[in-house]
Computed example of a mutant assay.
Amino acid sequence: MKALTWHGTADVRIDTVADPVIQGPTDVIIKVTSTGLCGSDLHLYQVFGPFLEEGDILGHEPMGIIVETGPDVTAVQPGDRVVVPFNVSCGTCFMCVRGLHSQCETTQVREHGMGASLFGYTKLYGQVPGGQAEYLRVPFGNTLPIKVPDGPPDDRFVYLSDVLPTAWQAVQYADVPPGGSLAVLGLGPIGDMCTRIAAHLGADTVIGIDLVPERLERAARHGVRAVELDGDGVVATVQDMTDGRGPDAVIDAVGLEAHGAPLAAGAQKLTGLLPGPMAAALMRRYGVDRLSALHLAIELVRRGGTISLSGVYGGMADPMPLLTLFDKQIQLRMGQANVWRWVDDLLPLVRDGDPLGVEDFATHRLPLADAPHAYAMFQKKQDCAVKVLFTP
């Protein structure tokens, strides 16, 4: 089959690789019909190379049709249409039954002290082959795939794999009071969807902050109060929108590759030039992130407010302004999305209507063969790219 594979920093290619096969009695094989390009994939493209091996298959936002099942699979059958969550979670362990699928005890990567395995996401998360491919092996066939109805286009459902549950969890963790205010830093796919969900759930003032004019314009079309990031001026602007206090909550949907922080950016690039084992050891003990977005969130949020982190951070030596966090009495919540925890909330919103605008959420729909170009385009924020879907 054809699949997108990692070959080095900013070097991904379409290769011919072996087809996946049933390995366990509850495995299923799906023929991928749509698969997304995630902002987290860009971390693999630029930063997390020390934890990848040449030939690793990327991608963690697939959906498709089941073509083969293991002998113990009873919940789905060949021909069923399913979405695959990015968490590889069993659904039955201590963590999963408590809605913490990203901490699944069955698939935790204990060798590296990490949580549940993820599709297509480095040795730290199990080195499980990903979904930017023609076919995908999915374990836990009775509990992991999300069965969706035939008929509506893939765009209606594919975001259940990551975008929708990640944004929904971010908004839930932000805990915006009814009629309250929320600022979202970063209007990529997750940040954009956070603004839509927050408005849908009753936030009165939703503010979106970004550097890219096209992303600001896109958010504004959905009723978001769009604010261009312009240094110190953004804080005063947001305070003016929120009675001088700052928003009740801030979502950081940017993460470790935030704009600015040239020293941290330089350290990330330097680490990428080191031999793999040396770079991995350095990142695990002394890695730093570009914290511009997080520091801005701390500055923006009102006293007694909440910061919700959905952007991925990977540093082990990040300096944090604990005095400010303590003095402002800020609550901080974060973590990988627990996909299945939110399916019952989200499935009616995409099955029975389209209040979140998922059918026109993608800015680009491309054949999988164009994936290397799409990675470069998305990383450079070219051609108004916000969300890219591939068709294998």
Rank of each mutant, 00 (worst) to 15 (best):
143 T>I: 14
77 Q>C: 11
229 L>K: 07
150 D>A: 10
50 P>V: 05
71 P>R: 03
357 G>K: 13
340 W>S: 07
99 G>F: 05
55 G>M: 13
164 L>H: 08
156 R>N: 12
174 A>F: 09
90 C>E: 09
97 V>T: 15
383 D>H: 06
333 R>C: 05
74 T>H: 12
87 N>A: 14
31 K>S: 10
53 E>V: 13
240 D>L: 05
59 G>P: 01
383 D>S: 09
91 G>S: 04
268 Q>H: 10
154 D>C: 02
360 D>P: 02
295 H>L: 01
259 H>R: 15
286 Y>T: 12
106 T>N: 10
283 M>H: 02
266 G>W: 01
47 V>N: 08
25 P>T: 10
164 L>E: 12
245 R>E: 15
73 V>C: 05
178 P>D: 13
237 T>Y: 05
9 T>R: 10
103 Q>M: 14
183 A>T: 15
272 G>F: 06
198 A>E: 02
303 R>G: 12
15 D>W: 00
133 A>H: 02
79 G>H: 02
332 L>Y: 00
381 K>Y: 04
377 M>H: 06
333 R>S: 09
113 G>Y: 08
257 E>W: 15
266 G>M: 13
129 P>R: 11
119 F>I: 04
369 A>I: 02
336 Q>K: 11
63 M>D: 01
32 V>W: 01
352 D>K: 07
101 H>E: 14
232 D>M: 10
332 L>H: 01
80 D>V: 08
111 E>K: 04
83 V>E: 04
283 M>K: 13
134 E>D: 13
373 H>T: 15
308 S>M: 05
263 L>E: 15
182 L>R: 10
21 V>F: 03
91 G>N: 06
274 L>T: 04
113 G>W: 13
50 P>C: 11
46 Q>K: 09
137 R>K: 13
160 L>E: 07
137 R>L: 12
306 T>K: 02
108 Q>T: 11
215 R>L: 12
58 L>P: 01
188 G>K: 03
76 V>S: 05
201 L>H: 09
217 E>Y: 00
271 T>E: 13
52 L>T: 03
260 G>C: 14
349 L>C: 03
96 C>A: 12
109 V>F: 12
299 E>C: 00
185 L>K: 05
271 T>Y: 10
154 D>K: 09
130 G>D: 08
346 L>I: 07
387 K>H: 03
331 Q>T: 13
183 A>S: 14
371 A>H: 08
353 G>N: 12
228 E>N: 02
237 T>F: 07
298 I>W: 02
